[in-house]
Design a protein around this nucleic acid. Sequence first.
DNA 1: AAGGCGGGGCC
DNA 2: GGCCCAGCCTT
Length: 362
Amino acid sequence: MTFSAVSLLLWYDHYRRIMPWRALPGQKPDPYHVWLSEIMLQQTTVATVHDYFLKFIARFPSVQALAAAPQHDVLAAWAGLGYYSRARNLHLCARELAARGAFPQTVPALEALPGIGPYTARAIASIAFNVPVIPVDGNVERVTSRLFASVIPLPAGKKQLATLAETLNDDLPAQARASDFTQALFDLGATICTPRRPKCMLCPWQKDCAAHREGKAAFYPVKTPKKQRPDNYGTALIIRGPGPSVLLRKRPEKGLLAAMMALPGSDWLSVSPPPDIPRKNASGGPWMYLGRVKHVFTHLTLYLDVYEVEVTSWGAARSSHLAPLLVPEMIVDAVPCAFKDLPDQALPSLMRKCLALTQLPA
DNA sequence: AAGGCGGGGCC
DNA sequence: GGCCCAGCCTT
């Protein structure tokens, strides 16, 4: 079975989406923009990436500018986008590219770079350098599983789908336009061959599609059920002091929200918070309970009880009357940050949610 | 092969 | 509430 690759390209010539990282027809793609957008788009929607991408290239106009920047600035520009290992690897990769002087243009060489796996290597090679390979993302998996009515549940069936996807541009006209063909697959998956209610009536591959012949395109791709998320609990402390400012600390280099800034607080545990912490300063106590923040991560749901403490000096924050809510080890490495500088900090969304519970000074 | 790793939008 | 999103890395 040979697919009408050219019909997809004709469809693309008419319906292609315009995006800030994409070259317009007749223009050459910018490898920096292609690379950066591909990293940002990993597990992240086009709508979310759009503004981040524009701000990022305004702040870091070139690979060299990105390589020369301190890590904190890169993490701050990434804050809110999630999966922060992407930003750390992006920065590492920029330094390697800057030292090297140019982008490699083959799949194996690209895949050897930090943060670039099998998918992204093929995406950059095909989109930026017109190499005839097919990057298999969620879109391509969905399109391919429907074309072939593949019933092997994902993720176990990924290898089979990748093999099938390689045959999609198995003719010379499509391979000559490898860059367009890859982006056409993305656009088809994003606008026609959608997860729910696919628009088969508008699909250039309708007559090629086994799932459509079965009358159940939406049934594909088959996926194995996901594990449920456990709940975790903890406290976060908004310790306000002179300036006005607030204490922040940098999280460890590995693990959840690695190397990002955070409010001081307790560890996050699977047990409910101890009931002996007063939720209000009813007895004229030193802290105020502001509320509970719920935040859903990929593999756990976190509930943080947020408290506010006002101190006249940072030394006072270590005084014993703030225990057990605030113990010195929580702030041993904390540093004050002026409220006006919070927007420039590498604060993940979870911490911005917590800070939103307090009344910022005017 | 499985699990860690963010966050937002959609239904 | 669950699912999806232009996945990578470690174990």
